[in-house]
Design a binder for these strands. Structure first.
Ligand SMILES: [Mn+2]
Ligand SMILES: [Mn+2]
Ligand SMILES: [Zn+2]
Ligand SMILES: [Zn+2]
Lengths: 153, 153
DNA sequence: AACAAAATAGTATTAATTCCTATATAGTAA
DNA sequence: TTACTATATAGGAATTAATACTATTTTGTT
């Protein structure tokens, strides 16, 4: 991500905050910056460690609270998955996730067909749909190899 | 679910256990029965309460362990979602989930188109795909109404 | 500069899940 | 049936994740 893109995103984020009457605090900005700079879908703990390098006194609670706020205002979201700790994503572009159930790494991928998936008519009448995701899980290459090694012992 | 269906599933479950060299214990059977009798995608805690009515001395650890075992051998799975406590599903038929982000209720639905979704070629080469799910979240009717009530105050 | 609402740090608490270990049990083979 | 062994369990401790509490600080606004 180049400087221009970062500035754009930040300006956008400031606007979003103003609209929602959220104050622009150094903590909020640094959490947001740490998140959009990550491509590994970090946990709150991981974001905390990153922000701490800039704001050594930031509290984990603030990071947690802020990440949830980002999710609420649509500046980020919680990655879908089965179990495990919450993982966050600041990349709002259309994309999907593959998660390794062993090492818990989450990989972005993109499949055009999946972008256009909509909730069925029936469902949209009964519920307020806020998000539709295609979620794929399995094993990454290294984990698959390890698994086989163990089995053949 | 009628008696015949239950017996079928149990027999099937016993076979699955034998194949995997898992012992058939009363705890295992009751956890499995409690799960397939539920349609609300219970948490470990909820299954625990149910099993306790039959086996008062069962431990929460055993329920947790057993649910994870069921997931591992493919007799059940962990419902996909963003955050929150683990929820389990013993219904192996093709279906999808809608989750209300407020009350956390999980609703089954079924959309034929979604059954045939496969991981893209590219991904299948790089990873071992074990599961593909379409996950939808939003608000259920009652939660949507409550939300609006609050906003208009 | 003054103010009020909102946000934060630091800590405590709660909730979820896993780990530990002595005991009990299921499946197996005599 | 009985004896044996690997597996599973109960109960409690420990760990981890996430939230709640509260005094203090800060932001956005007069
Ligand atoms: Mn992503
Ligand atoms: Mn289901
Ligand atoms: Zn992996
Ligand atoms: Zn609801």
């Amino acid at each position: 991500m180049d400087l221009k893109e970062l500035e754009d995103k930040l300006k956008n984020f400031y606007n979003r905050c103003c609209q929602q009457h959220l104050k622009i605090t150094p903590q909020r900005v640094e959490v947001y910056k740490a998140l959009i700079a990550s491509s590994d879908h970090p946990s709150a703990e991981a974001v905390y460690e990153k922000v701490r390098q800039v704001l050594p006194n930031v509290s984990l609670d603030t990071v947690n609270r802020t990440l949830n706020t980002l999710n609420k205002i649509g500046a980020a979201f919680i990655v879908e998955g089965s179990g495990d700790v919450k993982r966050f994503d600041g990349n709002l572009e259309n994309h999907q996730h593959f998660k390794c159930i062993k090492c818990k790494k989450i990989f972005d991928f993109h499949c055009n067909e999946f972008d256009n998936i909509r909730a069925p008519e029936k469902l949209r009448h009964k519920f307020t749909v806020l998000r539709v995701a295609v979620y794929i899980e399995g094993l990454c290459q290294p984990c698959f190899e390890k698994e086989n090694k163990i089995k053949s012992n």
